[in-house]
Amino acid sequence: MTITQLYYVLAVAEHKNFTLAAEKCFVTQPTLSMQIQKLEEELDIQIFDRSKKPIQLTDVGEKIVQQAKNIVNESGRIKDIVDQQKGYIGGDFKIGIIPTVMPTLLPMFMTNFINKYPKVNLIIEEHNTNEIIKRLKNGQLDAAIAATPLDEESLKEIVLYYEPFVAYVPQNNPAYNKKEFDVEDLEANLNNLLLLQDGHCFRNNILNICKATTLNHDNHFQIESGSFETMVKLADEGLGMTLLPYLHTLDMDEKHQEKLRQFKDPRPSREVSLIYSKKELKLHIIEALRTTIAGVVKGAITFQNVEISSPLQKKLN
């Protein structure tokens, strides 16, 4: 049994296809298949049920994959230990970022990080919070950037910044004439509030501010969208108001800026953090990311009096 064989098993388990798994492992399909077959013969079991499409794990295969993840992840830590001892900042580093942070934060720090740490190969993936948690625990990500706190015992969170929410109010809304918003104004507009679809922690942030678990729209339509741009366009059509993260508003033109309303202190905000497994050893790269991001956001976000809204979905009693 070799680590390479286990690595191939994990690839097939993830992609459910031998050809695709071989491509991701940069080997030929016959080579990958032969190594997995050798492992199955050695163990005298079948890891995969090849009669099903897509390929499925057998019952014992499920257990082997869970153990293989631990072995492959731990074997990779040997190189991490050596790199850290040598002070070497380089190699592959997989980072997940939630969709409501990716478009604004990534362009702010990416160029600086690449220029400062050219030997690091950042592999950036966009995932929702639940997927990020799963991949961090499985070792499929080295770190992530998401809204916190997440209350996950196995994960460590380093706060990067606090980002206030900003109301985007159309002219037909009575609240348009207010210079500043408070939570009561938000609750009064709850039935006409345009929010991202379920699965986005930003939606949970807003519902938690309003102390609500769901919305009862009276505007005769429901929409499932993961785009702030869509919410803004619907608001411009007079179909409701929406909330945006502060960084998302910085590049808006003057026409759209006129519809933005800040909240009174303490401003409802989200906490955005760098997250990684407590077992993670690539701490030198994590620290490099933290300092780079901190350097670029401190000039953009200077708010101090904030009230953090949880990204966790409230459970119904």
Rank of each mutant, 00 (worst) to 15 (best):
I97G: 00
R50A: 08
I89F: 03
F93R: 05
L57V: 08
D59W: 11
V82I: 15
S51K: 13
E126I: 08
E126M: 13
I124R: 04
K52F: 11
I78T: 12
E74F: 09
I132R: 02
R50I: 13
L57R: 10
I71M: 00
I55E: 05
G91L: 03
V120F: 05
A143Q: 00
A68R: 02
L155F: 05
I145P: 04
I145H: 06
A144K: 00
Y88E: 11
R135C: 08
D80M: 11
N128C: 10
D80Y: 11
I55N: 03
K94M: 07
D49W: 12
I145N: 06
N115K: 12
Q46S: 14
I132K: 00
L155T: 01
T148M: 07
N121T: 14
K69M: 14
V65T: 07
F93I: 01
A143V: 07
I55F: 14
I71Y: 02
L141D: 02
N130W: 00
N112I: 04
V72M: 01
I133R: 12
F93S: 03
Y88I: 10
K156C: 09
G76L: 03
M108S: 10
Q56D: 01
I98A: 09
D49L: 07
E125H: 10
Q56L: 12
Q56H: 09
S51R: 15
I132G: 02
N112S: 14
A147F: 15
P54K: 06
V72P: 01
L105H: 05
V159A: 08
T100Q: 06
G139C: 08
P149K: 09
H127G: 07
K52T: 15
Y117C: 00
L136G: 05
A147G: 10
N130I: 06
K116T: 15
L136D: 01
Q66H: 08
V159E: 09
K86D: 13
L105A: 04
L141G: 05
L57I: 07
E62C: 03
Q84A: 14
G76S: 06
I124K: 00
K52P: 08
G87T: 03
I95K: 04
A146E: 05
L57F: 09
D142T: 03
I158T: 14
I71N: 00
R135D: 13
N121Y: 04
I81H: 03
T111A: 12
Q46M: 14
I89G: 07
D83S: 10
E157R: 09
I64C: 03
M102R: 01
A147L: 13
V72Y: 00
V120S: 03
I95W: 08
L141Q: 04
E74S: 12
L43K: 11
I81M: 12
R50H: 08
S154K: 15
G61R: 05
K94E: 07
L105E: 02
K137C: 05
M102E: 13
D59G: 14
N138K: 14
I95R: 01
E74M: 13
V159H: 02
S75P: 01
Q85V: 12
R77E: 11
F113N: 08
G61E: 07
Q67E: 15
K116I: 04
E152F: 05
V101G: 02
G90L: 03
D59S: 12
I89R: 08
G90N: 02
Q66P: 00
